[in-house]
Design a protein around this nucleic acid. Structure first.
Lengths: 113, 113
DNA sequence: CTATCGTACAACCATATGGTTGTACAGAGA
DNA sequence: TCTCTGTACAACCATATGGTTGTACGATAG
């Protein structure tokens, strides 16, 4: 069975890559409840402004957040559509896995130790 | 209420990192329906045996697969418990996100790092 | 206008990643 | 036994990543 190509490999790679860093997951979480500026975000972390700026850029490239200018500030917010899309992708992975696991269950589960 | 630290940051990083490569996702998928040896896996990809071996090692370190010796062959299978665990983590992320999207309630941020 | 703030970006550095080739060794088969 | 196969692992290379500092520039405050 061929898994439907819902998203390019590169896009999936970027998505998971973006999530593979605690600082970025934290930024993403914050940007869900607030709409902080980049410098407000940067103030929360021990690293330099430029470092946070890079993390924001990674999240932006992965499509998980977006920036919108407000005067000289760049306000960061999550891209909800993309976030949902990300969720669907993960769900898709999971369901594929579970489906396959289900097939395996027929063989492996009867023992149920 | 404090959100339980279900998994260490490092563990989460490894998990997402492991998923952020198409070859590894493919290996993971194959190892769900089959229990291929490392060399059988390697035969399916254009890269060298050693390269595939490294990908397998990454998946193993992330806890997504396990190897079991059968004679001189190393048979690769998915760690179903860990896989489910991975799914739960993703679900946890999603539900947290959705919850935050739904209401600006308590902020459960693992504090600033 | 001038000073400052928020941002962008370049240059640099150390380490990690993803690939290669080559060597070594244990298990299976002639 | 001796050979081939499957695996492990080291060394190496190019590029990516995650951090730094420094410079530049538009927007805002005084």
């Amino acid at each position: 069975m061929v898994v439907q190509r819902l998203e390019s490999d590169k896009s999936l790679n970027q998505l998971f890559r973006a999530l593979a860093d605690g600082t970025r997951r934290s930024i993403l979480a914050r940007s869900l409840t607030e709409t902080p500026s980049v410098s407000e975000l940067a103030a929360r972390y021990k690293m330099s402004f430029a470092a946070v700026q890079k993390h924001v850029a990674v999240l932006e490239r992965a499509g998980l957040i977006q920036k919108r200018a407000n005067g000289r500030a760049q306000l960061v917010s999550t891209n909800r559509a993309r976030l949902q899309r990300a969720g669907e992708l993960l769900d898709h992975f999971e369901s594929t896995w579970r489906q396959r696991m289900g097939q395996l269950d027929d063989v492996l589960l009867p023992k149920g130790k």
